[in-house]
Design a protein around this nucleic acid. Structure first.
Lengths: 132, 132
DNA sequence: CATTGTAGCGTTCAATTGAACGCTGTCAAT
DNA sequence: ATTGACAGCGTTCAATTGAACGCTACAATG
C-alpha cells in the first residue's frame, strides 16, 4: 500500500534494462545503455544499489559479481507510475490524457486500428462475463 | 526548442492552479489549494517565483501584490510533459500507454463511448482533409 | 607467486526540490 | 502620525538525484 518510492529518470532507465533482460549485472546494464549515454561503470553501480535499497530490485551475489533482478512486477510498477502521472497532471482522470494522445499526437493509421481493436475486445469481454 | 525546464510535483500543482484561474496572486493560489495541503504562504510564493524564473509564468505587479499568469500555452506544456513521460517509460511509443490505460485501468462504460467517438471523429477528419 | 584488472562498498559533491524564515516596504485603519 | 497586517525579496536547509571516486578484495594469467 505504501506508495512506492520515487523512481527518477536515471534510475528508471537502468531499471527498465533489468526488467527487459530479466536479470543483469552492472556490466550488462552498462552494455545495454546507448553508447552516447556515457555513464561510468561506478555510476550504473550506484543506481543499481539505490534501486535495491528502494526495493525495486533484488540482488544476489554470483561469483564476484552481483546479479540484479526485479523484485516487483514491472507491469505493476509501470501502472503505479501512470496513476501517479495522471494524478499530477489531470487529477487522476484518464480521459484528458487519452484525448491528448489521440488528438494532439499524430497516431499512425496502424495505431488507430490497433486502438479500435482494443476497444472492441473490451466490449466483448464486457458483454460475456468471465468464462475461463 | 530547448526542452523546457523541469516542472516538479509541487510547482506543477501550483502552476495548474494559475492555468485554471487564468491569473492569480499568491493568496489566490493558496486559497485554491486543498485545505489539507497545509502549505505556507511563503512556500507558495517561492514556487511561483521559481515558476517565473523558469519561464513558465510571467508576473506583473498590481498594487502591492504580484499577479501571475501563464507565459506558455498550458496545452503545450502538458504535451511536452506527456512526450517526456512517454520517452522515459516506453521509448516514446504511445501504444503501450494506451494499452495500459484501456486494459489495466477500468474505463467506465461512458469513457469507452467517448473514446470510440474520438476515434470516429479522427477517421472522418482523415478521410476528408482540411476544409476550414 | 606477483600482477593486473574488475567488482563491491562506502563516500563524496553539486544541483534540484520541498518547504519555510527574516527583514523590509507599504497600504490601510486608528 | 503610528501601528499593524500583509507582500516581496533574498536566504536557508534538509532530502533527493545525477554522477563519479578511492580503497579494498579477489580471481585469473603470465
Amino acid at each position: 500500500m505504501s506508495p512506492l518510492p520515487a523512481l527518477p529518470r536515471s534510475e528508471l532507465e537502468v531499471a527498465r534494462i533489468v526488467w527487459r533482460l530479466g536479470s543483469a549485472t552492472v556490466r550488462q546494464v552498462l552494455e545495454e545503455l546507448p553508447k552516447t549515454r556515457g555513464l561510468d561503470f561506478k555510476t550504473v553501480q550506484t543506481y543499481l544499489r539505490r534501486l535495491e535499497a528502494k526495493g525495486f530490485l533484488s540482488a544476489k551475489r554470483q561469483g564476484r559479481s552481483k546479479v540484479y533482478r526485479s523484485r516487483l512486477r514491472p507491469a505493476k510498477v509501470v501502472r503505479e507510475m501512470i496513476d501517479d502521472f495522471l494524478d499530477r497532471m489531470f487529477d487522476g482522470e484518464a480521459m484528458p490524457l487519452l484525448q491528448h494522445l489521440i488528438h494532439d499526437r499524430g497516431l499512425s493509421e496502424e495505431e488507430v486500428e490497433q486502438l479500435r481493436q482494443l476497444l472492441n475486445r473490451l466490449e466483448r469481454e464486457n458483454d460475456e462475463p468471465d468464462k475461463s
